[in-house]
Amino acid sequence: MNIQRRDTLKAGGGIGVFGLLVAAGMIKPGAAIAARDQAMFSASSLDEAFQAMNAGTPTESGDVQIVGPDIAENGAVVPVGVTSSLANVEQIAIMIEKNPNMLAATFALPAGTLADVQTRVKMGQTSDVFAVVKADGKFFMAKKEIKVTLGGCGG
């Protein structure tokens, strides 16, 4: 067996899994999904995700806070909240830089809903968590490192 053949097989296998994921992502019924921007969720780097959100490069702002632990014992359930004192917040996104699916969730906030959301996310490993907030058409972000002692993906 030559080494090249092995590499080819490996590459093929990789594409297979990727293809499956894409297919799983694509088979989506109904109009309700149309509003969900798949490009955002399939982004694998911070820049890609910002681009998909049309966010440019968000300004780091002290008016955006990430509420979460400094150390998460269990990466499968990490409580993360985002609050902001900015006015007219329209959108909040939570991103975990080192997860295979970076973007955990985005929230569209109509007028009257406060910029204060909490959820729980999975984290495969210690990573920076980003909160991106769109207020008055501008993007702001905050960053917080959360250390994970036990990964949440794959168990």
């Binding site: 921007d37 955002m40 699916n101 929230f107 569209a108 999975k122």
Partner: peptide, 13 residues
């Protein structure tokens, strides 16, 4: 509507 959330697989079980 008071909130619309879009989630990815990174959200916890």
């Amino acid at each position: 509507t008071v909130l619309t959330a879009y989630m990815g697989p990174s959200v916890s079980t």
